[in-house]
Simulated assay, not measured.
Amino acid sequence: MTRDVSRPAARLASPTFSPLYRQIKDFLIRSLEHGEWGPGDAIPSEGELAVRFNVSQGTVRKAIDEMAAENLLVRRQGKGTFVATHSDPRSFYRFLRLVPDGGKVMPTVSDPFCCETVLATPEVAAALGLKVGDKVVHVKRLLRFGGESVVLDEIFLLAELFGGLTLEGLRAGERSLYSLFESEFGVRMINAEERLRAVPADGQSAELLGVQLGEPLLLVERTAYTYGNKPVEWRRGLYCTRHHYYRNELG
Rank of each mutant, 00 (worst) to 15 (best):
E46L: 11
L165T: 01
E123G: 10
A84I: 04
V55S: 03
A192S: 10
N54S: 13
R171E: 11
R3G: 04
L161F: 04
A120P: 01
S176W: 00
L177G: 02
P19Q: 01
L96Y: 13
F27N: 12
P107H: 10
C115H: 00
L142I: 15
V55P: 08
V60G: 01
R175Q: 03
R175G: 07
G146F: 06
V99N: 03
I29V: 14
E174H: 11
G186D: 08
L177M: 12
E48I: 10
Q57A: 10
G203H: 09
R195Y: 15
I64S: 00
G173Y: 05
R197M: 15
Q204G: 03
V60S: 03
K230Y: 04
P89R: 06
S31W: 06
I64F: 00
F92R: 13
S110L: 13
E33K: 12
E182L: 04
G129N: 14
G40E: 07
Y178T: 02
F17E: 11
Y225P: 00
T108A: 12
L152E: 02
G40R: 12
M1K: 07
E123R: 11
K135V: 00
Y246A: 01
V109G: 03
F162R: 02
V109S: 05
D4I: 10
P216W: 13
P216M: 13
N54V: 09
S110E: 11
R30A: 10
E148K: 12
R90G: 10
L12A: 14
V132A: 13
R242Q: 04
N229R: 14
S18V: 15
L152S: 03
L167P: 02
G38A: 12
R235E: 11
P39M: 08
K79A: 14
L213M: 05
V220S: 05
F181H: 01
T226Q: 07
P8D: 06
D101E: 11
A126D: 08
D26V: 09
P112I: 02
R175V: 03
T241H: 06
R175N: 05
R30E: 10
E46F: 08
G80F: 10
A69M: 05
G163I: 02
G80D: 12
A172Q: 15
G38L: 08
A198D: 15
G164W: 00
E194Q: 06
D153W: 00
Y178A: 01
Q57D: 11
L219W: 09
C240V: 05
P39A: 12
A13H: 12
S205C: 02
H243R: 14
E33I: 00
R61F: 04
S205V: 14
E221A: 08
A42N: 06
Q204F: 07
V199G: 06
Q204Y: 08
T226W: 02
L130C: 05
V199D: 14
A50W: 13
A172E: 08
V51Q: 05
K140C: 14
R97D: 04
R197A: 14
G146C: 07
E48K: 13
L208N: 01
V5W: 05
H244I: 03
R76M: 10
T108S: 06
E46I: 12
G78W: 01
E233P: 00
V83C: 00
R22A: 04
H243I: 00
Q204R: 09
